[in-house]
Amino acid sequence: MSQTDGNGQSPQAPKKGPSTKTLARRQARTLAMQALYSWHMAGQQLNEIEAQFRVDNDFTAVDGAYFHEILHGVPRQKSEIDGAFESLLDRPLDEIDPVELSILRLSTYELKNRIDIPYRVVINEGIELAKVFGATDGHKFVNGVLDKLAPRLRADEVRANRR
Results as ranks from 00 to 15, higher is better:
residue 8 G to D: 10
residue 8 G to Q: 11
residue 9 Q to Y: 14
residue 11 P to T: 05
residue 12 Q to V: 07
residue 13 A to P: 06
residue 13 A to W: 06
residue 13 A to C: 04
residue 14 P to V: 04
residue 14 P to I: 00
residue 21 K to A: 14
residue 21 K to Q: 14
residue 21 K to V: 11
residue 22 T to N: 13
residue 22 T to C: 04
residue 22 T to S: 15
residue 23 L to I: 01
residue 26 R to C: 00
residue 26 R to Y: 10
residue 26 R to W: 09
residue 27 Q to E: 12
residue 27 Q to A: 13
residue 27 Q to N: 15
residue 28 A to L: 04
residue 30 T to E: 12
residue 30 T to W: 09
residue 32 A to R: 04
residue 36 L to M: 11
residue 38 S to R: 15
residue 38 S to A: 15
residue 39 W to V: 00
residue 39 W to G: 00
residue 40 H to S: 15
residue 40 H to D: 13
residue 45 Q to M: 01
residue 46 L to K: 01
residue 46 L to G: 04
residue 48 E to M: 13
residue 53 F to C: 10
residue 56 D to S: 13
residue 56 D to A: 15
residue 58 D to G: 09
residue 59 F to A: 03
residue 60 T to E: 06
residue 61 A to Q: 15
residue 61 A to R: 09
residue 61 A to V: 01
residue 62 V to L: 05
residue 62 V to K: 01
residue 63 D to W: 07
residue 64 G to R: 02
residue 64 G to F: 00
residue 65 A to F: 05
residue 67 F to D: 05
residue 67 F to C: 07
residue 67 F to E: 05
residue 71 L to N: 00
residue 71 L to D: 04
residue 72 H to S: 01
residue 74 V to W: 03
residue 75 P to T: 04
residue 75 P to R: 09
residue 76 R to H: 05
residue 78 K to Q: 15
residue 78 K to D: 11
residue 79 S to W: 12
residue 79 S to R: 12
residue 81 I to G: 00
residue 82 D to H: 03
residue 89 L to K: 01
residue 89 L to C: 01
residue 90 D to N: 12
residue 92 P to R: 10
residue 95 E to H: 09
residue 97 D to P: 03
residue 97 D to R: 02
residue 98 P to L: 14
residue 100 E to P: 10
residue 100 E to Q: 12
residue 101 L to D: 11
residue 101 L to P: 03
residue 102 S to F: 07
residue 102 S to H: 05
residue 103 I to Y: 10
residue 105 R to Q: 10
residue 105 R to G: 09
residue 105 R to A: 01
residue 106 L to E: 02
residue 107 S to F: 11
residue 107 S to T: 10
residue 109 Y to P: 07
residue 110 E to H: 06
residue 111 L to H: 10
residue 111 L to I: 06
residue 113 N to G: 04
residue 113 N to K: 08
residue 117 I to D: 01
residue 118 P to E: 15
residue 118 P to Q: 06
residue 119 Y to V: 07
residue 121 V to K: 14
residue 122 V to K: 09
